[in-house]
Structures are given as structure tokens and as C-alpha cells.
Design a protein around this nucleic acid. Structure first.
Length: 258
DNA sequence: ATGGCTGAGCTACTCAGA
């Protein structure tokens, strides 16, 4: 089973890119972030024609997350944590794989820049609530797949020049510590599990030729709980969509499990 | 290099992204 996470930076502006990607790679489930639209304007019909059900937690203009899935996702919810600003950043659901009930958690973590603003405080408190909730979730169901745009660069190797990001909300130590807290609850950063020292990215800025110069960062992640380690087959950052015309600034990360 | 693009909402421009 192939599960993909992709921050599409507007589902409506990206519809052609997404449909082309789906036809090329044939994933079973997609976790989308930054769909930037309300539920009513989500292009569910276009996805339905291509064999996918849509499960949407939208918001006007900003944020918004969704699942696309060939199979049914059950128990879909938007209320995993209480979001202080009522932004659409989490959607969860359940699937059955080889008799294992797996909970899917799709997230779009606040960016948090600039660090001397309320936005940074929001990111910190959001992550604190989230880590706390995930600890509880793990005690209820040990089989968790947690993925999305974390807006966290885990380590120095995960960005083209970490010195430039020391005081950035994506790389500040107290933010990276939140990521480590999650891992320490009993998760694996799947990309790093398979690639101990490889340097690859999932995001490149639109400006200053960042893509051409490979000035990127790895901020989109798949975390799976320890109980699912035996089910992992592979993980791949697929850079092709970022090279296309009118791309998202993020590219998909693809997980294969059995 | 704290923005050089890009998208949404809306029709001139701000806000947000990372």
C-alpha cells in the first residue's frame, strides 16, 4: 500500500498537477495539506472520477487538510486537538491493513515565523498540545501513521545551510526538541530510518532560484509508531512534481507499507 | 538574502507562506 503526503499549496490551483501525479504514481491514500479552500469548493468530483474518495477539513484562503483515498477511511475527525485560532490543521481517520487497525493523522503544523511574534507562540503551544495528545493516542491504539507538513527541520543535515536557520521557527532548538519528543514517544522518522546520512529535501522556496540551486529543506515527514516497523517497505521523496510547470513549493513523500 | 515568488480574495492590495 502506497501512502503519500503532499503540501499542495492550494488544491484548486494545483488540480492538474495533482491529477497527473495520481495517474503517474497510483497511490492508495494521499495526505494533502494547505488546500486553501473551504469544503464546499474542494474538487471532490475530479478526484472521484479518478477513483478517490475525499475527506476534507477545509478553510477559506489558508491552511486546510484532506485525505484522498481509494479505500474507505472510517472515523474521520477534525478535533484531535483544540486549535486556539480555530485553524484547519489536522484530520484523522482509520484504516484496516492486514487485520491491523491503523490510525492516520494528517497535520499541517503552524509555520511560526517570525520568532518574536504571536505566530511563534502559537506554533509552540500547538506542538505542546499535539505531543501531549499523541502520547495519549498511542496508549489507545499503538498503530499510528503521523504525516504531513511539520514545518520542522529535524537536524542540520536536513537543510542546505543550517547557519541561516538558527533563529528560524523551522529550526530553532526548542522546536526541534518537540520533534524529538514525538520520536521518543515511540515513533520512527521513516525517511531517516531508511536513509541514515542522505541529504534530500521536500521543500524549495519559489524565489531566488532555490529549486535550481537545490536550496531546500526536509520539513515534510512520515512518522510511524514502533508497532508498524515490521510493515515498512520503502520511502521515497519524489522530486518530479516540483520540477513541473506551476508546481507546489513542496514535493510529495511516498511511503510503502504492507 | 526577512525577500527575491506564489496563491486567495478580490479587482488594488494585503496577508501568508518557510
Amino acid at each position: 500500500m502506497k501512502i503519500v503526503s503532499w503540501n499542495v499549496n492550494s488544491v484548486r490551483a494545483r488540480i492538474e498537477n495533482i491529477l497527473n501525479y495520481i495517474k503517474d504514481t497510483n497511490p492508495d491514500i494521499l495526505f494533502l495539506q494547505e488546500i486553501k479552500t473551504e469544503n464546499i469548493n474542494f474538487p471532490s468530483e475530479a478526484f472521484k472520477k479518478n477513483g478517490y474518495n475525499s475527506y476534507v477539513f477545509g478553510q477559506k484562503s489558508y491552511n486546510g487538510v484532506a485525505f484522498l483515498s481509494k479505500c474507505k477511511i472510517t472515523n474521520v475527525k477534525n478535533d484531535l486537538i483544540k486549535d486556539k485560532l480555530k485553524q484547519s490543521r489536522i484530520i484523522t481517520g482509520e484504516i484496516l491493513v492486514n487485520k491491523k487497525k491503523i490510525k492516520l493523522i494528517n497535520i499541517y503544523v503552524p509555520n511560526g515565523n517570525p520568532i518574536d511574534s504571536e505566530k511563534y507562540e502559537y506554533k509552540k503551544s500547538w506542538l505542546t498540545s499535539f505531543v501531549k495528545k499523541i502520547k495519549k493516542e498511542l496508549s489507545l491504539n499503538p498503530n499510528l501513521i503521523l504525516s504531513g507538513d511539520f514545518n520542522i527541520i529535524p537536524e542540520e543535515i536536513d537543510v542546505y545551510d543550517y547557519n541561516r536557520y538558527k533563529n528560524d521557527a523551522l529550526f530553532k532548538l526548542e522546536i526541534r526538541k518537540k520533534f524529538r519528543e514525538l520520536i521518543n514517544l515511540g515513533f520512527n522518522d521513516v525517511y531517516r530510518y531508511f536513509n541514515k546520512s542522505k541529504q534530500e529535501y521536500t521543500f524549495w522556496d519559489y524565489f531566488a532560484g532555490s529549486w535550481q540551486k537545490n536550496y531546500g529543506m526536509r520539513i515534510d515527514h512520515f512518522l510511524v509508531s514502533n508497532s508498524l516497523l515490521e510493515n515498512l517497505i520503502s520511502i521515497n521523496i519524489n522530486k518530479t512534481p516540483r520540477s513541473k510547470s506551476k508546481p507546489s513549493d513542496h514535493t510529495p513523500i511516498e511511503l510503502e507499507i504492507n
